[in-house]
């Protein structure tokens, strides 16, 4: 019996250091080893780092004089550009929330919702397709669905007497674009959140029930708190996904919606209000938002991995 109190201390030292088998002899001092990864770093330097750095430097430089300036960033604070950021952020948030909710509920249905196995397989395949079905053809599909003569528009008008466009809806506006983005957003949610739902152990539910918890108590006190980091993480991924979208918005609205990507696009083309410095600043602004989103995403992912491993 004396063993018991001892054992509580016995293992404290070993906690946390038993991950990963010993990494056998990586002697990275030899230059030959570095040769093996040179092509990769050279490529990524040329085609990711250099272009980003170019934009970054350009954003801090006066176009005509070449001197350091913050003027380009001050140029972002015009109503036009601020509204572009605001609309882009709003549309990204709305589609991340909407797509997140729909995608989560569908993933819930096929993982713990008690549906037959084939529904899951089919849903995951469908989601793989839909998450990749974006850009120009997606815009065409939604024009045929919710455009002025689109099938759903006509259906609602003739059968239910509801004229969407009289009600102020337009496919080429904020909500129309949101509906369109949702088409690739919710499948992306299904794909990212399904593994997390699979990670919910049956024993957690049973342990909760065993301790007297109702289904509701299990979900609010155990399952949802455990799932919260991956859910938030996935929604941030969705946010980034619409934030950077360009082709879908352009082909749907013909460039008449004021999104950051669209503004950058016209800066590249150099057609309206051409001002390279401002373009660079716009691009840097986007990267900053995306980088923040990704940082939160990875922090959340680390937390949930810590919880779910073993």
């Amino acid at each position: 019996m004396l063993l018991a109190p001892m054992s509580s201390r016995l293992n404290t030292e070993t906690v946390g250091i038993k991950r990963d088998a010993p990494q056998a002899r990586p002697d990275s001092s030899r230059w030959r080893n570095w040769l093996g990864v040179t092509p990769f770093f050279l490529f990524t330097f040329l085609f990711i780092v250099l272009p980003s750095a170019y934009l970054l430097v350009g954003a801090f430089r006066n176009n005509s004089t070449g001197q350091f300036t913050l003027g380009n960033f001050l140029g972002l604070f015009t109503p036009e550009i601020l509204s572009a950021y605001w609309v882009t952020i709003r549309i990204s948030a709305v589609t991340a929330l909407g797509g997140g909710l729909l995608g989560f509920m569908m993933a819930y249905a096929v993982t713990v919702g008690g549906l037959p196995r084939w529904v899951r397989t089919t849903l995951l395949t469908f989601s793989g397709v839909a998450a990749n079905f974006a850009g120009v053809p997606l815009a065409f599909a939604f024009i045929a669905t919710l455009g002025r003569t689109g099938m759903v528009t006509v259906f609602l008008k003739t059968i239910l007497g509801l004229d969407l466009y009289d009600q102020g809806f337009s496919l080429y506006s904020f909500w129309g674009l949101s509906f369109t983005y949702l088409y690739f957003q919710f499948p992306l949610m299904v794909l990212t959140i399904t593994p997390a739902l699979d990670g919910l152990k049956r024993e957690w539910r049973e342990a909760a029930e065993n301790l007297g918890a109702s289904t509701f108590q299990y979900w609010t006190r155990v399952a949802l708190p455990i799932l919260m980091p991956p859910i938030l993480g996935a929604m941030i991924l969705l946010f980034g996904n619409s934030f950077g979208a360009y082709a879908t918005a352009l082909s749907l609205t013909g460039g008449f919606i004021n999104l950051v990507t669209i503004v950058i696009g016209s800066q590249i083309k150099g057609d309206i209000l051409y001002n390279p410095g401002l373009g660079y600043a716009l691009a840097v602004g986007m990267v900053v938002v995306m980088a923040m989103a990704m940082m939160i995403y990875f922090a959340l992912r680390r937390r949930s991995e810590r919880w779910l491993r073993q």
Partner: peptide, 20 residues
Amino acid sequence: QPPNQRNVGMVFQAYALFPN
């Protein structure tokens, strides 16, 4: 009787502690 009304304690093979 549903498991959450039995008042029977259970210890699982894989601990099943709530990680959160």
